[in-house]
Nucleic acid binder design. Structure first.
Length: 491
RNA sequence: GCCCCCAUCGUCUAGCGGCCCAGGACACCGCCCUUUCACGGCGGGUACGCCGGUUCGAAUCCGGUUGGGGGUGCCA
């Protein structure tokens, strides 16, 4: 696909209801990457027409999410822009105006039917099509008067044209609907409130959106929108019909769309679980797109360079947490240790491993300790468990009971005693000296396999079977605390 | 029911007529490295839903079929 001629303008238009979904992130990412790749504009618009369900809390969590991910928008909340406001709840006058213009055209008509009446007629006629049947398309004045006299209020309905509607979908190719299967649809409620069917295209038109990249669930509403666009152009609201591209679903377990019920669906939870934004984004990008045949770890910048909407596949993808973890881990290994330290800090604070603010002593210790665990953690949140033993007050130091049971039993006591004696005799407290001393005492002296020799020491001193490298850990812990913990384990 | 979309390893995908008795990644299973855990390295198994057609030649094109998904609101 070549670079579009007109400047690209794309948008993400979430409804601020509930906790943001990873599917939203994927859609946002593809729109963002498309805009950045083409040097276009990425618009962030809020579709809060549903007053019942929209919340400020949801909106701010979407904003937090986007900020965390680093998906920046050129127009929208907090940054403004030439098409402000970007919240639909603040754009009512625009919709009233659009509705008025449309009502003055032949593209719409007033409809007095109830849903039940329409369904009953369809049924009676034995129609295969469901939805509105066009009954009110050509009402006589007498009929209108009768409805009015009956106290009925009209909804504004859009008159679908005859024939078929075809568009060249950016990810699926040519798609055609016969309009006989696309019933006339309501643009506004009887009370005048505009509906999504109206506001979404109107805002896209007003904001001059050139490409609509959205979920595949909107595929079947596209013919209606394309027909509406013709009307909007006619009444002077739209300049052009955008191109459409329908992104495949993100599925959960089984064959269901990943729902808000699934814990994996909540995008912000990944931040709290210690994922890197670049890891999550990279994984999500893989759901429907690939950068190359033999690669799947890449940066956002690389994605921007290579992203083509035409390369997006049309089939739905299953969300695989294991792979998300693996991709995240790869990104973790790509970060310099200082950067990991920097990002791990909030987790250490939250877990109470270090104070807030961090004392100079702890900061120093951290700088020495981080290189030991950098390659050992796959998420930022995993650092606390590995480092806690270094920072904890001696009084609060605890050995994991299960690990102790496995490593320090009858057999462990002589090992710990020998270790204590060897270390106690040390004049230089360094990793090398410690290693030599323990090696000599346990492996050579007691004839133990390294595994059996160092296991008990590890548990006694770090409190767990899983820890940073032992000798380095001992050095960082220091002579007094190391010997003290051995003694405690012996007691 | 009707309309639309989709269809390669368990999963995400590469493949856009011969380079493919199908490549990569995750997961899985062995082995190596190794003081634990990771990391890293090596090796292994597993896929073109089915039936026709086009073609010298099809995972790739066409038709059908089956299966899955979505839509069918005065929801978005």
């Amino acid at each position: 696909m070549s670079t579009p001629v007109s400047p690209v303008r794309v948008r993400m238009a979430p409804s601020p209801t509930g906790s943001p979904h990873v599917g939203l992130v994927r859609t946002a990412l593809f729109n963002w990457a498309f805009a950045r790749h083409h040097g276009g504009t990425f618009v962030f618009r809020i579709e809060d027409t549903d007053k019942e369900r929209s919340t400020d809390e949801s909106l701010s969590s979407i904003i937090d999410l986007m900020r965390w991910l680093g998906l920046d928008w050129d127009e929208g909340p907090e940054v403004g822009g030439p098409h402000a406001p970007y919240k639909q709840s603040e754009r009512s006058d625009l919709y009233v105006d659009a509705l008025a213009k449309l009502k003055g055209s032949s593209f719409t008509y007033d409809c007095y039917c109830t849903t039940d009446e329409a369904t009953a007629r369809r049924k009676a006629a034995g129609s295969k099509v469901q939805g509105y049947d066009g009954f009110c398309r050509e009402l006589s004045q007498e009929q209108v008067d009768a409805f009015l006299a009956d106290g009925r209020q009209a909804v504004v309905r859009f008159r679908m044209p005859d024939g078929s509607i075809t568009w060249n979908d950016l990810v699926r190719g040519e798609v055609t609907f016969e309009t006989e299967f696309v019933p006339d649809f309501a643009l506004a409620r009887a009370n005048g409130d505009p509906l999504y069917t109206l506001v979404n295209p109107v805002d896209d038109a007003l904001m001059e959106i050139t490409h609509v990249l959205r979920g595949e669930d909107l595929l079947s509403s596209t013919p209606r929108q394309i027909a509406l666009y013709e009307a909007l152009k006619e009444v002077g609201i739209a300049k052009a019909t955008p191109d459409f591209g329908h992104l495949p679903y993100v599925m959960g377990e089984g064959n269901k769309k990943l729902s808000k019920r699934d814990p994996e669906a909540h995008a912000l939870a990944y931040r709290d679980k210690g994922y890197l934004p670049e890891g999550l984004l990279n994984y999500l990008a893989l759901l429907g797109w690939s950068i190359a045949a033999d690669r799947d770890v890449f940066s956002l910048a690389e994605m921007v360079e290579k992203f083509e909407i035409g390369d997006v596949v049309a089939n739905p993808a299953r969300f695989d947490l294991k792979k998300a973890d693996a991709i995240n881990a790869s990104h973790m290994r790509l970060l310099p240790i200082e950067e990991i330290s920097h990002r791990v800090l909030p987790f250490l604070k939250a877990d109470g491993v270090v104070g807030d603010p961090v004392s100079d002593a702890d900061a120093q210790l951290l700088e020495l300790a981080m290189p030991l665990i950098g390659e050992r953690i796959n998420k930022l949140s995993e650092a606390s468990a590995l480092l806690a033993f270094l920072f904890v007050d001696e009084a609060d130091f605890e050995v994991d009971a299960e690990d102790a049971a496995k490593q320090i039993g009858e057999a462990g006591i002589p090992v710990l005693q020998a270790s204590y004696d060897a270390l106690e005799a040390l004049s230089t407290w360094s990793t090398d000296a410690i290693q030599t001393a323990l090696q000599t005492a346990l492996v050579d002296g007691l004839g133990l396999k390294p595994r059996n020799a160092f296991g008990p020491v590890r548990v006694a001193v770090t409190g767990r079977r899983i820890s940073p490298p032992l000798f380095e850990s001992l050095e960082l812990l220091g002579r007094d605390r190391s010997l003290g913990r051995l003694q405690r384990a012996l007691a």
